[in-house]
Simulated assay, not measured.
Amino acid sequence: MGLKYEPLVTESLAKQISETIRQAIVEGDLKVDERLPTEPELAARFGVSRPTIREALKRLAAQNLIRSRRGPSGGTFVNKPDSIEAQDSLINMTSLLTTMGEFDLPEIAEARRELELICVRLAAERCEPEHLERMRAEIEIQKNPDLADQDFCASDVRFHRTIVDATNNAMLCFMMSSVIEAVQPIVNLIVFRFWDRDKTVSQHERILSAIEAGNADKATEVFLEQMDDLQQRYAKAQALRDNK
């Protein structure tokens, strides 16, 4: 049975066309809500078949870059990017790559340490009362001696997510979603057996106190202390993995 080249060629053409249209959207040559040419028009302009155009449009729709509408005023239109959907996509992809071993624990620890350090400092400068209350609420949850390990890990994630939110920087919040909401929960469940809950709660209380006082230096000092402890837990978890 011989090789079938046509599907590969068609897919390549569709990919090239979708990337061309995507680039036009990214660069602003195609505006939000602008109507694209019809399938026959696109096929004629690119010199390809309509099925190839349909495949290219499917690729763009999967990236949420375009939408279709039926009726007399229908057609295919450029979508306005949705930051929430993009963030969810980033979280899901990062979670998948992490569980597949794309990133090792030292890389994760280094990335989180350096990125969240910025967030802690900004939180001390910009934190609002609502953020302080959210952090207090999580600390109270963490003090419950009957709290399950998984629930403690989830509360820890929410506490640090609130620190990120307290920066009031939309770009940082978007970027850190992959670190805090995708990677941290996975790593927490790996290292929880080495967790000193009381020490973690004490550190959270001191971080909160420093942020509330607007003392960025103290907040970062305690955060780095917590990251050093976490690094030790990472090392123990990695050693346990290596010995299996």
Rank of each mutant, 00 (worst) to 15 (best):
G2P: 07
L3F: 09
P7G: 05
P7S: 07
E11N: 11
S12K: 12
L13T: 02
A14Y: 01
Q16N: 10
I17M: 06
T20G: 07
T20Y: 09
I21C: 02
I21H: 01
I25A: 04
V26M: 06
D29H: 10
D29F: 07
V32K: 02
E34Q: 13
E34R: 04
L36H: 01
E41I: 06
A43T: 04
G47M: 03
V48S: 03
R50A: 03
T52C: 03
I53L: 07
R54W: 02
A56E: 01
A56C: 04
L57P: 02
R59L: 09
L60Q: 00
L60Y: 00
A61P: 00
A62K: 11
L65P: 02
L65M: 14
I66H: 01
I66F: 00
I66T: 12
R67I: 05
S68Q: 13
G71A: 07
G75A: 13
N79E: 15
K80P: 05
S83C: 05
I84E: 13
Q87W: 03
Q87K: 11
L90W: 02
T94Y: 00
S95G: 11
L96C: 07
L96W: 04
L97G: 09
G101R: 04
F103V: 06
P106M: 08
E107S: 14
E107R: 07
I108Y: 02
E110A: 11
E110G: 07
R112G: 12
R112A: 08
L115I: 05
E116I: 04
C119K: 03
L122C: 03
R126V: 09
P129D: 08
L132N: 10
M135L: 03
A137R: 11
E138Q: 15
I139Q: 03
K143L: 14
D146W: 15
L147A: 11
D149A: 15
D149F: 12
Q150N: 15
D151F: 06
F152D: 08
C153I: 11
C153G: 13
V157Y: 08
R158Y: 05
T162C: 13
T162M: 11
T162Q: 06
A166K: 00
T167G: 09
T167Y: 05
T167I: 05
M171G: 03
M171P: 01
C173Y: 02
F174T: 04
F174M: 04
M175D: 04
S177F: 03
S178R: 00
E181V: 01
A182Y: 01
V183H: 08
I186P: 08
N188W: 10
L189G: 13
L189C: 12
V191D: 11
D196G: 08
R197F: 14
V201R: 01
S202T: 14
H204L: 01
E205G: 14
E205N: 14
S209A: 15
E212D: 14
A213L: 13
N215W: 02
N215L: 10
A219N: 10
Q226G: 13
Q226V: 05
D229H: 00
L230T: 12
L230C: 07
Q231F: 02
Q231P: 08
R233N: 12
Y234K: 11
Y234T: 14
Q238F: 07
A239N: 12
A239L: 13
A239T: 12
L240K: 11
R241E: 09
N243W: 14
K244C: 03
K244A: 07
